[in-house]
Write a protein that binds this DNA or RNA. Structure first.
Lengths: 174, 174
DNA sequence: AAATTCTATTGATTTAAATCAATTAAAATT
DNA sequence: AATTTTAATTGATTTAAATCAATAGAATTT
């Protein structure tokens, strides 16, 4: 554990500060010790799309940029004051060499992320606005409570107005 | 290469035959030498949802079921007569032990699949029916040409009627 | 505390895609 | 080749969600 820690760079971010800006190359894979971050991008029409939330114990990066040293299309930003442990590509390789458990851990993380993304695709393609919101709340109550509503809407591919109406409907029903 | 081949079980599937049935445990990761397969599931309302296509040189499995020995929610079926090389969990582990390149290759595959899924999420959440169809055709022309149109519709989360109209619109424009 | 910015709600209207229904076209099976 | 099954198209209508617009409510900042 002590050995492991030497590979990481601690970093604090204040709310609204960024770990990665669109167009830059993502050189870190960030483990979140405290706080919450999001990644997002802005499309040609100027609309913002929320790609990922990440809370304590999760990792966040632009995997495509991080792995291939390509320019990122995403921005990663803290939604609360946060404490991170940063891993550079080099440190990650070194960790995987020296601690086999870590390679296994990374593979498991990626597998879980892949499976979670598969579920998100199914949700995006087949569920109604109400189902999307309820299912997200069940799967990640910590996130839904903690984040502005319009960001949840963006994550689900809904407008803020639609999500507001969906919430009203749900509250009337119960 | 010769060593590598001994780990695989060759298998031929005729069109419409299945590699995996919903409810079963997925014990194979299948490499496609020839042909094309799809994975899909049927929801509570009886609607079929196409999860994945896979052609020559690709892999197909229910990763969740394969990795955790859980019951699959997907069915995997050949859309043409196909030739596969099957890898059991045990053979996969052995291959990764004995041929380090193979572990690296598997990790790269998973990374690419993750990144592709991320793109599919963005598409599903933000694009119009027409954009989805055009972008899919650009990314995977081989698949769009080779597969019944209603399956493309299902993959994109559209009804067959909508896809038919989208195609008509595109043909009128050009 | 006042002002500004950000966030959520509500109403009216539009729009993209789904649904329902019928018909035509193509493919597979006998 | 004839029949059956499967696939694609087209039309009419409905519906879920987006858009446009205004207002109200919170949270920050000065």
């Amino acid at each position: 554990m002590e050995l492991c820690k030497t590979f990481f760079i601690p970093k604090k971010l204040r709310k609204k500060q960024t770990l990665l800006l669109e167009g830059d190359i993502c050189i870190y894979n960030a483990f979140i010790e405290k706080g919450i971050l999001r990644s997002f991008y802005i499309d040609e029409k100027g609309n913002e799309h929320l790609v990922q939330f990440a809370i304590e114990g999760w990792w966040i990066t632009d995997l495509s940029s991080f792995l291939t040293n390509s320019h990122s299309i995403y921005t990663i930003e803290a939604l609360e004051d946060s404490e991170l442990l940063l891993l550079t590509t080099a440190a990650r390789e070194a960790l995987m060499d020296q601690i086999p458990m870590f390679e296994r851990y990374q593979r498991l993380l990626l597998q879980n992320a892949y499976i979670a993304n598969q579920a998100r695709i199914n949700s995006a393609l087949t569920e109604t606005a109400e189902e999307k919101y309820i299912n997200l709340g069940n799967a990640y109550p910590g996130i839904v409570k903690r984040v502005p509503q319009h960001m949840i809407a963006s994550y689900l591919g809904l407008t803020p107005e639609t999500l507001s109406r969906v919430r009203k409907q749900i509250s009337i029903k119960s």
